[in-house]
Design a protein around this nucleic acid. Structure first.
Lengths: 151, 151
DNA sequence: GATAAAGTTAAAGTTCACTTGAACCGTACC
DNA sequence: GGTACGGTTCAAGTGAACTTTAACTTTATC
């Protein structure tokens, strides 16, 4: 059983042009063609497409994803290199998550801030609040917004 | 005390051209000018720049950040709208973190997979592994890579 | 075999977020 | 006041990741 590019695109939730672009960039060396030149996506190919989707979600650029795919097709002597690449991306994801966690704490503080502002009838009244009126769980975030940067 | 655009850029760890770009896009309506037209960044302005940096880290586009800044300068009647915007972004961050968590589990599985491949002397041998040779903690991730998409 | 829908390529266009270049101006120091 | 450094604007350029267009071919159905 096989899928045309339109069917595969629908299954993946992307535009057919996106898959053609990926192919042109060398991300889909595994996709075969019909005698007439039409791309044939096999079930097994979706395993690859899922990996590509996963790496894309980590923010990895197309070029680096290609490097990984290329390594996969170069045989067993690249296993260590592939693992290293996966580990590097794992570290990048952990860093992103830590960053998002900090960002989230700031958004939570802002939510609290506006809740107070609504209660006090405006942002002007917020200035009159003593610094220890900020609940403990928002102190760190409040500081992040005020602090001097990268000094 | 005030900073020139170059000093402010250094403190924030960005290029001066980036700040000029943000200004042109309406992200810095609070920055004043010298009589000669030179931008003067005050200490208070860095509070704003930190918020911009924070929103940018959530992946919010410049246009939407501008909307938020604009709301802030429209007075107290926009407090609820600002809070709604912050909440929306909070949800977006939570979704991103959930996505990264899933991605991380796949990268962890891949790490395990290559560890096995190294031990067995190649990826070919991995096919001979029975499905329940996959440790419990990696089963879900392995499924994510095999499963049919968006059906 | 005709037709329509969907496939193919190559090249150009789009959007986003900056960056660079050209020409010019403001500020600080000697 | 002259010089150098860094500021200003506007327009054009960049790179990433697609998308669109044009011209043409393949494939499925009648």
């Amino acid at each position: 059983m096989h899928y045309t590019i339109g069917e595969a695109a629908k299954r993946l939730g992307v535009a057919p042009s996106t898959l053609r672009y990926y192919d042109k960039e060398g991300l889909l060396p595994f996709v075969e063609r019909s005698p007439g030149g039409v791309r044939l996506f096999r079930d097994a190919d979706f395993k690859w497409l899922n990996i590509i989707e996963c790496l894309k979600k980590t923010g990895m650029p197309i070029r680096d994803i290609r490097t990984y795919i290329d390594l996969c097709f170069e045989g067993d002597h690249t296993v260590a290199a592939r693992q290293a690449l996966i580990n590097k991306q794992r570290q990048a994801v952990l860093a992103q998550m830590a960053q998002l966690q900090q960002t989230l704490s700031i958004l939570d503080y802002k939510h609290w801030y506006y809740e107070q502002a609504k209660a006090l009838g405006g942002c002007g009244a917020m200035g009159t609040l003593s610094p220890d009126a900020v609940p403990e769980e928002h102190r760190a975030a409040a500081l992040l917004l005020q602090r001097a940067n990268k000094e």
